[in-house]
Design a binder for these strands. Structure first.
Lengths: 155, 155
DNA sequence: CATCAATCGTTCGAATTCGAATAATCAGAC
DNA sequence: GTCTGATTATTCGAATTCGAACGATTGATG
């Protein structure tokens, strides 16, 4: 099940794990995206607003780092958030290359209003796994993610 | 680490698991996308070609089901693959609403050439986890994904 | 046979996402 | 101070992705 691929056992195992990881993530994302869409924003926009709410104003570069997105992507998403009046851009005084992004009152109100429901929704989605198994999953993902970001090889 | 959010313990745990799941998936996807890009295709296109290679020709609707993508998305991706001469569309004779998609010789050659390297790459990415831990991860993801697809509630 | 609802694919508009190329700014070397 | 290289954000082109609206086709119902 998962992959209909017949190969070496280690390949079958890794591919099966891979496909299940992707499908689970897809399902979680789709559910959360549908939920935040009711408030008129996308999951990417939600990520920016939530980061600004919990960590405060920061440069676009920092946002890209936190959210693992490219610089050009952040520019586009901030453009759309700014057009909706949810964030504001400010050229940093002591380094005019940097643009700091902050929540507007409207943006703060919105994200503060929808975040609790978002958190509850995540709790509910993950409630299929016991607390111990949630921790297991987090640990496995942490190990996996670590080994990839650190092993930046080319071959 | 992960979320800088202070809330109820069950919320912190679920959010932490969620963020690590997303980041791990992002890292894996980015690595594989960079690899297939060397052959001039995207990860979405790769998914279609690989499905057709291992399961044979099928309708666009079936492809969307396998890959968890919308119908309009499949149309677009198939458009791009067709333009590159990698797949062919055939109106099904006994039901002219359906369009079957199949690999062209060029498409088959391409996917057969790059799939082994792709599989090896996945094996390497997941080698940070022992075989047992890979199976654990797969099982946790399967449980998580199942509970979401089956529990199609609204609230 | 005619109509009507369901199914399948396409089209459209909008947002995301990337990499490459570009512009503005800054920091260091001289 | 000036030049050079690095950093930061923007722009551009292309692909992905979705939902909604639409057209074509089918199957069922009368």
């Amino acid at each position: 099940m998962g992959t209909h691929f017949t190969g070496r056992p280690d390949e079958v195992r890794a591919l099966d794990t891979f496909i299940k990881l992707m499908r689970a993530t897809d399902s979680v994302s789709a559910d959360l995206a549908a939920h935040v869409a009711e408030s008129g924003i996308t999951l990417g926009q939600f990520g920016v607003l939530e980061t600004l709410l919990h960590l405060g104003p920061m440069s676009q570069g920092s946002l890209g780092g936190k959210l693992l997105r490219s610089g050009s992507n952040i520019t586009t998403v901030i453009d759309n958030l700014q057009r909706q009046g949810l964030v504001a851009r400010t050229r940093r005084k002591d380094d005019r290359r940097v643009v700091d992004v902050s929540l507007t009152p409207k943006g703060r109100t919105l994200i503060a209003r929808i975040f609790p429901g978002h958190a509850r929704r995540i709790v509910r989605l993950f409630s299929a796994l016991s607390p111990d198994r949630q921790r297991q999953l987090a640990e496995l993902c942490r190990t996996l993610g670590r080994s990839i970001s650190e092993g930046e090889q080319d071959t």
